[in-house]
Design a protein around this nucleic acid. Structure first.
Length: 313
DNA sequence: CATTGTTTATTGCCCC
DNA sequence: GGGGCAATAAACAATG
């Protein structure tokens, strides 16, 4: 296999499917939902290959968004300006990728037509669920400062198929995208190498991906620079008290059956859905100092249950 | 009008 | 060879 030159190497087509790329983009933002244009931007920022022939791949990507049940549309709130909806991953599409790797998908995620089981399988439920999740993330964000706390929102009782983090896992991929101090980025790299026996894996295994922290210091997905929220209101306003929940928008892709609401947390949420990128590194300073985080997983879970209780009424 | 979203069709690859 | 998945093209509708 001839190795292409270094210059052309980074322009190679990434080994990810559009589903993987989209999932990466969605997972990279704190709200875990992005409008289409932001998904485009994420991909183009990270993968130079996709800065060309945009019409072609963007059409394909839109096709994937609509075609695959693992993506759900979450409508903007009425006071939210902008075109198009937010896109999120279906909460039950966990373990879609083997070992958390975005290189390979286990099987196509399909929403089951029946609704007599646990978890928000229906599009409407999933959208509802994700709305709440995004709100909780933002609330936690505002309560703890600029970064997400170590709130492993779904980690309790979740199938932790991957304490081992595959180097192709989302955490390892998007971690570099996060706006972190240089020293932290370095320690993250170190911990990744420690967690997986590959030497210098990022620079050798990801020639097709830019380290956007170099080319884009104002990381577009950091919370502070994110100019959109899923609720169309300033973060501070949104998180103030969190008492008066806005009306839950109706999902755009309705199911024929009536909406029953969901009475339980999803039975399984993948680890890659639950972890903030910072949490991938057990040695990262943020992890080391996260004990001061006010929201423990159990506390967060309690909050979630409370929200669900409210929403079911 | 540009963007976003849906749907259908075709093709290629991989695996059983 | 057939089935499943993914990439691509294209037509078309909806929307801001």
């Amino acid at each position: 296999m001839p190795r292409p030159g270094r210059n052309t190497y980074s322009d190679q087509k990434p080994p990810y499917s559009y589903i993987s790329l989209t999932a990466m983009a969605i997972q990279s933002c704190p709200e875990k939902m992005l409008p289409l244009s932001e998904i485009y931007k994420f991909i183009m920022d990270r993968f130079p290959y996709y800065r060309e022939n945009t019409q072609r791949w963007q059409n394909s990507l839109r096709h994937n968004l609509s075609f695959n049940d693992c993506f759900i549309k979450i409508p903007r709130r009425p006071d939210q300006p902008g075109k198009g909806s937010f896109w999120a991953l279906h909460p039950n599409c966990g373990d879609m990728f083997e070992n958390g790797s975005f290189l390979r998908r286990r099987k196509r995620f399909k929403v089951l037509p029946a609704s007599d089981h646990l978890g928000p399988t229906k599009q409407s439920d999933a959208a509802h669920y994700l709305q709440q999740q995004a709100k909780l993330r933002l609330s936690a964000l505002a309560a703890t400062g600029t970064h997400l706390p170590q709130m492993s929102t779904y980690n309790l009782g979740v199938s932790q198929s991957s304490t081992f983090k595959h180097p192709f896992a989302i955490e390892n991929i998007i971690a570099r995208e996060y706006k972190v101090p240089g020293s932290l980025a370095f320690s993250t790299m170190q911990s990744m190498s420690a967690g997986y026996p590959l030497h210098n894996q990022l620079t050798t295994a990801w020639p097709h991906m830019y380290n956007s922290s170099v080319i884009d210091t104002a990381a577009p997905i950091s919370m502070t620079s994110s100019d959109y929220s899923a609720y169309g209101v300033p973060i501070k306003t949104l998180c103030h008290g969190g008492q008066s929940l806005p009306a839950i928008p109706v999902p755009i892709k309705p199911t024929p059956t009536s909406m029953t609401g969901f009475s339980a947390l999803p039975p399984h949420i993948p680890a890659f859905l639950s972890n903030s990128p910072q949490s991938l590194s057990p040695t990262s300073p943020q992890t080391a100092t996260s004990q001061s985080s006010p929201a423990t997983p159990s506390e967060t879970l309690t909050v979630i249950y409370s929200v669900f209780t409210v929403c079911q009424e």
